[in-house]
């Protein structure tokens, strides 16, 4: 689209409000952290003026995956663990859409783990939100791959036996990783900043969001929610900056250059304090859709030519 056209588009467009992205009434449990993620997402859409008809939210199965229902944009509530391949298909066929993926720790890191690894490697331009509450909530409390060791649940009544999987270190270990960040639902401002940076990054932006589940693991993040000093804000000119108002609360800060992957891996391994910010960003990693030149529009002649060629294969000419 030419500069003139864009200008004219902007001329004619109205400003969006948060309500323009508000779908149905959220049906999450009382106090669920997903509400904060939904609010940050709607704020991002509004501030980036994403046209609802050009935006799609894709999800798998789980509490997190209900989010597309609450956005007044396009949405695709997929099947368990398969949000990423669906999102990749959408991006290939419709590169003009802004693609967001909402997935949970069970959806992404368990049944969908294989898709997750390869989606990182493909580095297609989309923003992935991993709602990580350390538990299967929708099915009423079963241990997930990110449940800390000792978590008592319906499937692990004596406490889980294995160390939790760290989605951050896994992502940072895959080839072609281009953007990794961590946010928490109880610091909405930094969540919004991180999601904005993730959206603006061209490539596979992976944001792990630690999310409270007051219903089933109400105490999981309590120490960090109520003690701001146990949060570690990563700051950098190329990362996010903590606003003066937030600095008054979250004083524990660590300068971290997102270009430094080794340091990112070190920080990603920290569980206490919880790091919040952009761990790694590399805008130079090529996107799969660019490498394949995918998603080009087809002209009328090309469509007709292909159809004719296909139909001619099966034509029986009268003798």
């Amino acid at each position: 689209m030419s500069a003139a056209t864009l200008c004219l588009h902007h001329f004619a467009e109205e400003n969006y409000a948060l309500e323009d992205y508000q779908g149905g009434v959220p049906r999450w449990c009382k106090g669920c952290g997903d509400n904060a993620i939904l609010a940050a997402m709607q704020r991002l859409c509004r501030d980036e003026a994403l046209r609802p008809e050009k935006t799609v939210f894709v999800s798998g199965i789980g509490c997190s995956s209900r989010l597309p229902h609450y956005m007044r944009t396009y949405g695709f509530h997929g099947i368990h663990g398969r949000a990423l391949p669906i999102a990749e298909g959408i991006k290939l066929a419709r590169p003009d859409l802004h693609v967001f993926v909402n997935t949970g720790d069970g959806d992404c890191c368990s049944i969908g783990a294989a898709h997750w690894i390869h989606a990182i490697r493909y580095n297609m331009n989309m923003t992935v939100l991993l709602h990580d509450n350390h538990i299967y909530g929708l099915t009423k409390k079963q241990a997930s791959p990110t449940s800390p060791i000792g978590t008592r649940s319906n499937t692990t009544p004596r406490g889980s036996y294995l160390d939790a999987l760290s989605p951050l270190t896994v992502t940072l270990g895959v080839q072609n990783v281009s953007f990794v960040a961590q946010a928490v639902d109880w610091i909405p401002e930094s969540l919004f900043q991180i999601l904005t940076a993730a959206y603006r990054h061209r490539g596979f932006s992976f944001v792990r969001i630690l999310q409270r589940c007051p219903e089933f693991v109400g105490n999981m993040f309590e120490p960090w929610v109520h003690d701001p000093q146990r949060m570690l804000m990563l700051t950098h000119a190329d990362g996010i900056r903590v606003s003066p108002a937030l600095q008054k609360i979250y004083r524990n800060q660590l300068p971290h250059d997102p270009a430094d992957i080794n340091r990112a891996r070190e920080i990603a391994s920290s569980e206490d304090p919880i790091p919040v910010g952009i761990l790694y960003r590399n805008p130079e990693v090529p996107c799969y859709e660019d490498l394949r030149g995918a998603g080009k529009l087809r002209t009328a002649d090309q469509v007709r030519g292909t159809l004719d060629a296909e139909l001619d294969k099966f034509t029986v000419w009268p003798q």
Binding site: K30, C32, N35, A36, P188
Partner: peptide
């Protein structure tokens, strides 16, 4: 600034 929009 710290409100997590939970509607309560």
């Amino acid at each position: 600034l710290r409100c997590s929009s939970c509607n309560e």
